[in-house]
Design a binder for these strands. Structure first.
Lengths: 223, 223
DNA sequence: GGAGGAGCTATACCTAGGTTTGTATCGCCC
DNA sequence: GGGCGATACAAACCTAGGTATAGCTCCTCC
């Protein structure tokens, strides 16, 4: 934890996952760190929640191994705080004396697993593996969606109007009628939309609008 | 089955939800039944898992209130069996002496809640409400998707080929080239697809193919 | 006060999408 | 052996989608 030659090693370690550990018991931290490193995982360990909150935003697939009983705020509180801060790193809880309501709350809030001490090595390794895998998928999805979002942000408000009507399946002339425009105007906006969104086809555009949560007001799929 | 003016009792109880209870303790069954009926919910109670499995497939939003400790198979086993039988009614567990691993297993397998005895009335009512709401949404989604699926089943194999290429954004002539067909043939199939699928627009068709899990081999969203 | 973007439209022109009618082959089921 | 559905294509015809060029107003920002 002391020496760090590389504050941000450019990308050399591509998407080498990291396991974050938060546990106030130093010997536990050491044991877990050794365990994870023994299977080739990168590890960062913290003694308390605030330390983690400071050091964070990881940019690679990662997960959090959390003792429920922490000094100050509990692990559950930390989970809540992270969710509020829009940080969705998967969490694995470890507990010495947890109870069922705690477990339920943690799991409902999206925890990957909730292990009781003494923890079997294989159990926690499996949980970590699953958590990292889930985080990888979440990140992939997220990256795609935020690309689309940032393109959407470059659209003018009229272009957005047209986008939503076009992707709901209306013809240019119908869009024009709804917006009180000439058909040619819609065509031109439509072309601009395709360019700005980087869509190669209408099918693309429809999928993007789905990802953005732009739902047509009128139905699909009737009789 | 001889003469019936109405084979399916039209909709009189439309989507009046049902709570299923499985508990071997008769007094518990009675208490829960009373509780749920007191807030206007329909209830069906069973003393054992097999009884439930026989009587099942509900056609309205519903949920299951399950004692973990059942004679014979446990509540968790029942959960597994239901999942295998493709029955996804949300489950709320109640337990007198559960432990954390049990809780984790139940929640990981999709349980809505896991309550410990003595159960507070409000807690179980809240859980039931949430479960029924979730089931309602699941059923809505399901109905839509299975309509689309059954339409998809009426497509000929060639029509499916064309569908997947068209919804991935290719132009008719490109589809024709890929399949070794004339463009006019693709156009004709395309028209048949629209009719058979009940799609009013390409946008519709794209959304349907998404629902069916037909993914284009090549990417969207590049630079 | 002028540049630039949003918003809007027109003319002209070309390509893509889609239907209708008609034709033909092949394999299958009764 | 005749009907049926799937597969395949053609000619003719019409509509929808899309671009380029040009011109207009209104507003904002420097």
């Amino acid at each position: 934890m002391t020496e760090r030659a590389k504050p941000l090693p450019p990308q050399e370690d591509g998407d080498q996952p990291i396991v974050f550990i938060v546990d106030d018991d130093a010997s536990m931290r050491r044991a877990l760190t050794n365990l994870f490193e023994s299977v080739g995982l990168k590890v960062e360990a913290f003694g308390s929640a605030p330390q983690l909150l400071q050091a964070k935003p990881p940019e690679v697939p990662s997960c959090l191994v959390l003792d429920i009983r922490l000094p100050g705020a509990s692990g559950l509180d930390l989970q809540t705080d992270l969710a509020k801060a829009n940080i969705h790193t998967p969490i694995i809880f470890i507990t010495g004396h947890g109870d069922i309501p705690m477990t339920v709350r943690a799991m409902k809030s999206g925890a990957i697993d909730f292990l009781t001490k003494p923890v079997r090595d294989q159990d926690i390794l499996d949980a970590v593996q699953a958590a990292i895998e889930r985080d990888r998928e979440r990140r992939d999805l997220n990256r795609t969606v935020s690309t689309v979002k940032s393109r959407f942000d470059t659209l003018s408000s009229r272009e957005r109007d047209v986008l939503s009507l076009v992707t709901s399946g209306l013809m240019n002339k119908q869009v024009a009628a709804k917006l009180g425009l000439a058909e040619i105007t819609v065509k031109i906006y439509r072309g601009q939309i395709m360019r700005k969104m980087g869509a190669k086809s209408l099918a693309d555009l429809v999928r993007m609008s789905e990802a953005l949560g732009i739902r047509p007001s009128k139905s699909d799929v009737q009789t």
